[in-house]
């Protein structure tokens, strides 16, 4: 059943997966090429530009994770889970297979990044005291995408009514915050929430930190 799920998941998400693979293969090559300084001794500016390019890795991880989670449950949501609930399989096993199918597609994207990073590092001369981190970069990308995927997976699996109420509440809070800001009043609740989500102990904390392929 798992292989059937993976095939179906691939059919529904292959455009996104192929686009993500193209992005992660291009990123290390393009970022190192464009960051390369005119003066090879200007390592500081090389590292600074590479650091700026490295922001695209968590961006791609975040988008890929959220999209894959939505596509995982799309067919079941369309059928109102009727087919899923009639299958002769425990619910937890069905959920696990769904998760695994998404995780394996994400792993394929991370593997593509790893190969591209290895190729980039092998063809790039490095100054002394600089090190390459192709394996760590690919592993962090995979883990970050899985983290976003699992959080979105859990949210998308919620009952429809709960998701609607939650989405409306979040939109209302954002609108209220914008109104408070425009009126010049004191009040800031969105930034602390975002900080809590993305700091070291938050569920999206893996998206932070360093993402450089070549670093000290």
């Amino acid at each position: 059943m798992l292989s059937a799920m993976i095939r179906l998941h691939w059919k529904s998400s292959r455009a996104w997966v192929l686009a993500a693979i193209a992005a992660v293969v291009a990123l290390p090559i393009v970022s190192v090429a464009l960051a390369w300084p005119h003066d090879s001794a200007d390592v500081a500016s090389f590292l600074a530009r590479l650091d700026a390019w490295s922001l695209f890795y968590p961006a791609v991880a975040g988008v890929l994770g959220a999209v894959m989670a939505g596509l995982t449950w799309r067919s079941d949501r369309r059928g109102d889970f009727v087919y899923a609930l009639t299958l002769p399989i425990e619910r937890w096993r069905y959920v696990w297979y769904r998760f695994l199918s998404g995780a394996m597609l994400i792993a394929s994207v991370a593997a593509a990044l790893w190969l591209a990073a290895l190729l980039t590092v092998a063809t790039t001369p490095r100054a002394a005291f600089l090190h390459a981190y192709p394996t760590a970069l690919a592993a962090k990308f995979g883990l970050a995408t899985l983290a976003v995927f699992s959080a979105s997976f859990a949210l998308v699996a919620l009952p429809g009514r709960v998701r609607q109420v939650g989405a409306r509440a979040i939109l209302a809070l954002i609108a209220l915050q914008a109104l408070v800001f425009l009126l010049g009043w004191q009040g800031n609740w969105l930034v602390p929430v975002l900080e809590a989500l993305t700091d070291r102990f938050g569920p999206l904390g893996i998206l932070g930190g360093r993402w450089m392929l070549i670093d000290v």
């Binding site: 970069l137 930190g209 450089m212």
Partner: peptide, 9 residues
């Protein structure tokens, strides 16, 4: 440096 610099994350 590098992506593995903060294993806690």
């Amino acid at each position: 440096g590098g992506p593995g610099a903060d294993p806690l994350r």
